[in-house]
Design a protein around this nucleic acid. Structure first.
Lengths: 207, 207
DNA sequence: GTCTATACTAAGATAGAC
DNA sequence: GTCTATCTTAGTATAGAC
């Protein structure tokens, strides 16, 4: 009590750093092997910490995974939230496609973590899918419907239009090894995808 | 030797049936949890057999998984193989899209097994991706390029056109629970996808 | 061919020294 | 805060009775 400050529960810098190190290592491992397929040993190995030390910072393997998922969801929905009903329709949608592809390029592990969770039947995020996600998608689907009704974009089923953006952008992160195996060396998948998706959606959205 | 026939190693009917039962149960389990996340206990439970009995029919967990993957690859490539360079371009491609979507609808577990394997870095099928798959895709990409050069379809990067077909059709199997959560009740995802993808690719392919 | 029992290893988590 | 040692359970695989 020398400094006279009552330390409620502030994380020290070293604690913050170690938590980050662990989460980063866990993201590596969970995104490749899924929850059940990952072990604390693997995470500890990647993090350069001992297994008991991991469990000093987090109460359980489950807790590390839960933390990653909840951090993920916000990041994941941000680009869609940014779709502005007052903006120019085609520009707004093309911007969304670009932001989503950038997420795949810059955060492929997060994309694969999410894909793993969905493949496994979304046991830990079903609630968020049916609540938060559905609400946001329904809202933006209405925007798309209005734009179509006004003849500003083609008349397409809005939910499936959104699915197509997810599918096409996330494919480059989730199936990265396949994309690279098929393209062979000397390609920049994301640069090529950017140009291709630009073309695809411009043609698709034209009324 | 009473019957005088040297029994090389023909599988009896009951053996065939049990092998099938095991493979079917394993497909259930592996497609949801990936290889590492799945256990023989789970597979035995679903198959209605004892764990040692599983290992009477297959030498190891690894062997069951390997068998599933090798059965899968052929089925998976068949629709692309069927794309006929002599056919009418748009019809051929639309048929491919439809066949691929039907695979997702009728064999979602196979699609998820494949997705799991790729997400994990394709440790067991990388060779097939770089060999068989790449060769087939390169061949069909040439066909697409020829069609584009002849002005019979739009000029698009052929590999990415094929990726887009994979991404859009497999999404409905791999992300099934998300699709249903977002659409809510009262939808037929595959019927809607069929109509949407028909529209999408017709617009995209128009020269 | 199928089961019970069991060997052996890996994995999640905790105790307690430092 | 971090480590070594350890408990406990789950998981792959095998032995051997029936």
């Amino acid at each position: 009590m020398a400094n006279g400050k009552a330390a409620e529960r502030p994380l020290t810098r070293i604690q913050q750093k170690n938590r980050q190190t662990i989460l980063d290592a866990a993201l590596d491992v969970f995104s490749q092997n899924g929850f059940r397929g990952s072990t604390l040993d693997q995470i500890a190995e990647v993090a350069g910490l001992s297994k008991p030390n991991l469990l000093y910072y987090f109460p359980s393997k489950e807790a590390i995974h839960a933390e990653l998922l909840s951090l993920l969801l916000d990041t994941w929905l941000d680009p869609l939230r940014a779709l502005d009903p007052e903006g120019e329709p085609v520009t707004e949608i093309m911007d969304y496609v670009r932001r989503k592809l950038e997420l795949s390029r810059d955060f492929p592990r997060e994309s694969r973590l999410f894909a793993n969770e969905i493949l496994q039947g979304a046991p830990r995020i079903m609630e968020a899918l049916e609540g938060e996600l559905k609400a946001l998608v329904d809202e933006k689907a209405n925007t798309l419907r209005d734009w179509a009704a006004a003849g500003r974009i083609a008349d397409l089923p809005p939910h499936h239009l959104i699915f197509s953006i997810w599918a096409l952008t996330q494919h480059y992160a989730d199936f990265d090894v396949q994309v690279r195996a098929v393209l062979g060396p000397g390609h920049d998948p994301y640069a090529e995808a950017d140009a291709f998706l630009e073309t695809l959606f411009r043609k698709l959205l034209a009324p």
